[in-house]
């Protein structure tokens, strides 16, 4: 068997080096927006309802998170930790994490009633082709907890925030 493979390998002709493989396979190159650094996505109607929950009616929550600055740090850190997390890094490899950091910040900021609108897609659409398992979601939650801990968000407040996100699990976990 092995010798047959070897023979076939030695017999095969190497392809010409000047072939544009992207063109051969119909691959379209995506280009990041020079301003935002994000890849373009299919158009859709932005709506705060896409954030997946009603915002808190309590200004204290946002202050516990350190306002816009703290919320942005937590959202970005959650994405960075997850990109480095061997359990779930593969999910993020081919994703636009520049955009994800922005939309995650907007979602957190909107839910914490810190004066943002959420311009991202709804939870079902955003996670449709990610193949997220329950264990992956738990890993992400741990990374979010670590990010909140680093910003000194009190644990009970962390849980109050997670309570907003927890019901979204059914839209996020797809297998």
């Amino acid at each position: 068997m092995f010798s047959i493979i070897l023979t076939l390998v030695m017999l095969q002709e190497s392809p010409a080096s000047n072939i544009d493989w992207d063109k051969e396979f119909g691959v379209e190159e995506k280009v990041r927006d020079p301003l935002t650094g994000e890849f373009p996505i299919e158009p859709f109607a932005p709506d705060n309802a896409n954030a997946g929950a009603e915002p808190f009616d309590n200004a204290k929550m946002a202050s516990y998170f350190g306002g816009h600055e703290g919320i942005r740090k937590i959202a970005e850190r959650t994405v960075e930790l997850s990109e480095q997390d061997p359990r779930i890094s593969a999910i993020f490899v081919a994703r636009d994490t520049v955009r994800l950091k922005r939309t995650l910040f907007e979602q957190f900021c909107y839910l914490l009633d810190a004066g943002c609108d959420y311009s991202g897609r709804d939870m079902i659409t955003a996670h449709a082709d990610l193949g997220v398992k329950m264990a992956d979601l738990n890993a992400l939650v741990e990374n979010l907890q670590k990010a909140m801990r680093e910003e000194r968000v009190p644990f009970a407040v962390q849980n109050r925030f997670l309570a907003k996100l927890a019901p979204m699990s059914k839209d996020v976990v797809t297998r």
Partner: peptide, 8 residues
Amino acid sequence: GDLVYGEP
């Protein structure tokens, strides 16, 4: 049901 996720 789920101890953590789903409806509160």
